[in-house]
Design a protein around this nucleic acid. Sequence first.
DNA 1: TTAATGTCTTTTATCGTGAAAAAACAGTTT
DNA 2: AAACTGTTTTTTCACGATAAAAGACATTAA
Lengths: 304, 304
Amino acid sequence: MGQGMSKSNNVYKDAYNRCLRLLDETRSLPSEPELGALLGVSRTTVRSILARMEETGLIAWNKRAKTVLRDPRPDDFFPEEETDTLAEIIERSFMRRLLAGGAEAGMQINELELAREIGVGTTSVREFLIRFSRFGLIEKRRNSHWVLKGFTRAFALELTEIREMFELRSAAAFTALPQDSPVWGDLDRLEEEHRFLQREIATRFNEFSELDERFHRLIHRASHNRFIVDFYDVIAMIFHYHYQWNKAQERERNEVAIGEHLAYIEALKSRDLGKVDAACRKHLKSARQTLLTSIPESRSSQKN
Amino acid sequence: MGQGMSKSNNVYKDAYNRCLRLLDETRSLPSEPELGALLGVSRTTVRSILARMEETGLIAWNKRAKTVLRDPRPDDFFPEEETDTLAEIIERSFMRRLLAGGAEAGMQINELELAREIGVGTTSVREFLIRFSRFGLIEKRRNSHWVLKGFTRAFALELTEIREMFELRSAAAFTALPQDSPVWGDLDRLEEEHRFLQREIATRFNEFSELDERFHRLIHRASHNRFIVDFYDVIAMIFHYHYQWNKAQERERNEVAIGEHLAYIEALKSRDLGKVDAACRKHLKSARQTLLTSIPESRSSQKN
DNA sequence: TTAATGTCTTTTATCGTGAAAAAACAGTTT
DNA sequence: AAACTGTTTTTTCACGATAAAAGACATTAA
């Protein structure tokens, strides 16, 4: 599938699907520039979307008039998998191989083989690997292959060490934010979401992962330091796959984490640096523990 | 120049030049694998080098026998500029534009234009920008262009904030290293180089930049944390161009820095955490100051 | 029988190309 | 005139192709 094609039109397909959902709400669509802003795409793409919607009888389109003719049906949507970015496809594929065992540290990574296996061009794989290298899991040998450093205990410890430094500093910066800063409102809303999830934990425990990320990103943003903010991408990536991979006691773990977050939020609102420090440390310690226990104790003896 | 060609043979040319320097020292060259290891290239490249050296009458080559026939002349060497990596060429070009004024924050970066201007393919430029993005100076707009964030005061402050966190921690880790660790020997040697440079400061002050990097990298390595070690790449890059750009009071600045380094080294050797902390703080503070004074006070009012 | 050389294969680095998507420009409608 | 639609140009994204370089295999010399 997909060999020989120059560029997939996933931007169009994804925006089309999102636009279909908009159709339910209104009798007519806004102007082209407005739609573009709403969907986050250019007018060129908007016009392709409108053209297809007209073809399939979803709307009547004549210049400014874009009247909705019927509700979208399930088969109007493009299949989910066709809306993914190439980068997403490659990342998923790569991470699956990395986590699905057999990925010994020190193993070399072959661009061509990866590209063939995933069914994409080498350029895309190369660019992915370059982007991915900042996560510290792979390394390039000068004009030669990439080397896998492995998702090891050492990696987790190094990652969490930085995370703890950065988050403690960000949390301190957070408490120093003026009372009228919008972040306090954001924090209140997040607290509410935590409370809600706590009540419904039995059925919605798997929604925590996403809330967790939003919460920590809010705190990191208070540092006003691009390197700290950007580093959260590394953490988010690791935890994203970690959550997908390690489902053991997920409910219990998340329940504990919600409790810790609430204590942390409480501390932030008190603006008492000592309390913030303690609550932050406590939560990060248990987060580290969770991550560590999910890593096999070193599959084979370490190589060089 | 250079349009249409698939891949430059700069690896070969650079290795050839380095191999020429080896010729002065011996009457005959070692085996092919040995030469490869020495020059850091594959046997394929070694054989191309030997082939050319035979052609130009530098050596007689018959299987294992590689006898040196004459000393290399200046015109045997490939021109310096032909030994550069494409990545280096692009980086220099890009940084020149960035520092040569007219590079307002918020300005968009055009891959195609850059590629044309430098005379390389778009792929190489794209890969460069992706690699370069980790320095925090540019940012990608989702499926659109890159945006220049600018080499601003804010950037310098964010950079140095992280640098200080990381280096204080690394320095502390350094003092905790066991007495028999090889780093103490490395430190002694660096101290000696500092003393030498201090004596010859009048003529060799411009050699400090390189020594500075080696010294700080040694300390950062003590953290045993890949994120800390890797972050030094960002610092090194910035200071590299900063040194090239801001030559004002270079001698005085470097003289001061050498003194601070020596005090810092002294503190490390004392293994007294308090002293280390103080010496490190003092040096980093003046390094930050130097960097800050070299940044124009904000060319125009900040955009969004 | 180990370690070199000679030969062949695979992989990486880089380009030009073309479709997708964005952006710029020109003409209309309100 | 401001904001829209219609049209054209430019840029980004991804591919296959090809030379450089690495690496693997076969052969030979010490």
